[in-house]
């Protein structure tokens, strides 16, 4: 069990299908790494099941079953799903991340300080990235007006709110400034989902913020 589980209200949002795709990916990766949260989601899914079972049922057109049965001739029963194959160089990626890793994707060095892979997740309200920090290195000081969700996938990092290791989940409520630093050991890799807009606050912020707004940083 991780020291920093996802808050239960966020697990409910996920189980109810209400989360946008970016935050939903963060919760899925956390649950893939954290058995306690996975069990919480099992319980919540069972709540969904109980609510469906409790329905009296709304009548379907007479033809509905017939038309679906007619379609089944063209729909194969698929073989049992297997866990996705791990990609070389991405052995740390939990299964729900693997479909997002496109061939040829690679780390991009940002500001000479950290590496980033920007993920293509539908919806433009969130920026979804993988970040890699060498031990002892930090992210540029920044603030954001919206939510920020972080899941640690390799190594660990520490900020003003505590120390985070693999599977740990953090929700930034917003406005406060924070500067995570990667812990000693292997490089820290994390998924970061940030509600836009993002504003850099350090000495270089004024210069760099136009680039952030244009999605170049």
């Amino acid at each position: 069990m991780s020291r920093h589980p996802a808050p239960e209200e966020l697990l409910l949002d996920y189980a109810a299908g209400a989360l946008p795709d970016g935050p939903a990916l963060a919760v899925a990766l956390h649950a893939a790494l954290d058995p306690a949260s996975r069990r919480a989601l099992d319980r919540l899914n069972a709540v969904g099941g109980a609510l469906i079972e409790g329905e009296a049922g709304a009548a379907l057109d007479e033809a509905a079953l017939e038309s679906v049965l007619a379609r089944l001739d063209r729909v194969a029963v698929e073989p049992r799903a297997k866990a996705p194959v791990r990609r070389p160089g991405f052995e740390w990626a939990p299964p729900p991340l693997v479909p997002h890793l496109r061939p040829g994707m690679g780390w991009r060095r940002i500001l000479g300080k950290f590496d980033e892979i920007r993920l293509d997740v539908p919806g433009d309200a969130y920026r979804v990235s993988l970040l890699r920090l060498e031990p002892g290195r930090g992210l540029p000081e920044h603030k954001h007006t919206g939510y920020e969700y972080t899941v640690c996938l390799q190594g660990g990092y520490t900020d003003a709110t505590g120390s985070y290791s693999v599977g740990d989940f953090a929700v930034g409520p917003g406005a406060e400034r924070h500067e995570p630093i990667a812990d000693p050991g292997e490089p820290c890799i994390a998924l970061i989902v940030v509600e836009k807009p993002i504003v850099l606050t350090g000495p270089w912020g004024r210069l760099l913020n136009p680039l952030v707004r244009r999605g170049l940083l």
């Binding site: 099992d42 899914n45 069972a46 969904g48 099941g49 109980a50 469906i52 079972e53 089944l72 729909v75 194969a76 029963v77 698929e78 073989p79 049992r80 799903a81």
Partner: peptide, 16 residues
């Protein structure tokens, strides 16, 4: 129908 082979009754009830 498509995913029936991936159903595992030890993991979840049918309705879940």
């Amino acid at each position: 129908w498509r995913k029936a082979a991936s159903f595992d009754r030890l993991r979840a009830s049918a309705v879940t």
